[in-house]
């Protein structure tokens, strides 16, 4: 009986570890300014071996909620000019990393998630 219990306990412990490391393989390079600033994985992911996407609270802890940004004129590929503030739009307060990518090229979610094609460089 003791063996069975031991087996179950070890299986449970193993399961916890397996889930923790399951997504480890996808870890990519940090690109852009965060790399220049010398940030490491654990600065954002809050764990030595990242197992999941960090919370956007991490972004907001350093950068704030970007509520002081202003509207600008953006051009789409059809030449229409639209004035908006990408940090204060009709879509609600979106997750930072939808546009600002840490491990790949940043892109405007408006362009990828919907039908717009605004010409804008996302940091």
């Amino acid at each position: 009986m003791k063996k069975i219990i031991l087996m179950i306990v070890s299986l449970i412990i193993l399961a916890f570890f397996l889930t923790a490391y399951a997504e480890d393989k996808q870890a990519g390079k940090i690109t852009g300014k965060h790399k220049e600033a010398g940030l490491s994985c654990s600065d954002c992911h809050k764990e030595k071996t990242p197992s999941a996407r960090p919370s956007q609270k991490v972004c907001r802890d350093c950068h704030g909620d970007m509520t002081d940004t202003k509207s600008k004129v953006y051009k789409d590929i059809a030449g229409h000019e639209v004035t908006f503030n990408p940090h204060y739009t009709h879509t609600g307060s979106m997750r930072c990393t939808l546009c600002h990518k840490m491990h790949s090229t940043s892109e405007l979610y408006c362009n990828t998630g919907c039908h717009h094609k605004f010409q804008v460089k996302v940091p």
Binding site: H90, T91, G92, M94
Partner: peptide, 12 residues
């Protein structure tokens, strides 16, 4: 609660 990354749904 909104499933999408952006709010508004078809009312956009």
């Amino acid at each position: 609660l909104e499933k999408q990354a952006a709010a508004g749904g078809n009312a956009n």
